[in-house]
Structure formats: structure tokens, C-alpha cells
Amino acid sequence: MFLSAYHFDGDPTTLVRAYGRMQEGFPPDMFELHACVVTGSGITVFDGCPSREDFEGFSVSADFRSAVAAAGLPQPRIEPLGEVHFAVAGKTVLQ
């Protein structure tokens, strides 16, 4: 799994609402690892894709850019982070 960060700058309250609208457009089982974090300058979404190749295709796709714009989010700064070595979410362990 390849982890990336999508940084959206602006008012966190406004961005969280827009992020919620964007999430409504995706099937709930689409995400393997996904977290939205409120920061001092906006929100950062951490997203795990099955591979770096999948990340590279998704992050520049017209579908993703359209979903971001339709939700009212600004285009994000996208930061590729790397391969996930270990992750825990509740009682689920990803390795």
C-alpha cells in the first residue's frame, strides 16, 4: 500500500464540510486506508492506494480533480509519502 497526503489550505470548518460532500460521491468500500486530519492551516487527507502506480494515476485523474472541484475544495498540494510498512486502525492491523 502506498500512502500519500492531500493538503487543502483554508478555513478548516469550510474544508471539512466540503470534504464530507466529496466523500458522499465515493462508494464507502472504496478506501483501504483513509483519514482526514484538521490542521492549523486547513485539512490534510491521508490516503492509501494499493500501489504507487495506482496513486500516480488517481492523483492526476480528471475524475479526482472533478470530484474536488464539485465538492467546493481547492486543488490540493499532493505529497507522495511512501510504502506503508505497518498501520493499525482500531482492531484492524495492516502490515
Rank of each mutant, 00 (worst) to 15 (best):
A5E: 08
L15R: 09
D47A: 09
G20A: 14
G40L: 11
G82C: 07
F55R: 06
F2D: 01
R65D: 09
A5I: 00
G42I: 10
E56G: 01
S4F: 05
E56T: 11
R52W: 09
C49R: 02
F55W: 12
K91S: 01
A71Q: 10
T39C: 05
H34Y: 13
A67D: 05
G10V: 04
A87I: 01
G57R: 13
V37E: 08
V68Q: 04
F2K: 04
G25T: 15
E53T: 13
F64W: 03
V37Q: 08
V37I: 15
E79L: 09
Q23V: 12
R65P: 03
V84C: 05
G10L: 13
G20Q: 14
P28H: 12
A69Q: 14
P74K: 05
Q75F: 05
A89Q: 03
T39R: 06
A18P: 04
S66C: 03
Q23P: 02
F55T: 05
R52V: 03
T39Y: 10
T44D: 10
D11F: 10
V45Y: 00
T44S: 13
E79M: 08
T14V: 13
L33C: 00
D9I: 12
Y6T: 04
P28V: 14
V37C: 11
S59P: 00
P27I: 13
F86T: 06
A5S: 05
L3M: 15
A71W: 13
V37L: 15
R65Y: 06
S61M: 06
T92S: 06
Q23I: 14
D11S: 09
C36H: 04
K91Y: 03
A70Q: 14
G90I: 04
L3P: 00
M30N: 07
G57E: 11
I78V: 15
D29W: 05
Y19A: 15
F46N: 01
T14D: 03
M22T: 02
A62R: 12
I43V: 15
S66P: 02
V84K: 01
D11A: 13
E83A: 03
R21L: 12
R21Y: 13
R77I: 10
F8T: 11
T39P: 05
Y6Q: 05
S51V: 04
E53H: 07
A35P: 03
D9S: 13
T44A: 12
T92H: 09
V93K: 07
P27D: 10
Q95M: 03
P12Y: 02
L3F: 07
C36N: 07
Q95H: 07
Y19G: 01
E24Y: 07
M30W: 12
V38R: 15
R77S: 07
G90W: 06
F46G: 00
G10W: 13
H34D: 09
R65V: 11
C49N: 11
F64N: 02
P80W: 03
F46W: 08
L81E: 01
I78G: 03
F64E: 01
L94S: 04
A70M: 14
A5Y: 00
F31R: 14
D29C: 01
T44R: 12
C49S: 12
I78F: 03
D9H: 12
F58M: 11
G72I: 10
G90H: 09
A69D: 08
M22A: 15
G72T: 09
M22Q: 12
D47R: 06
E32V: 11
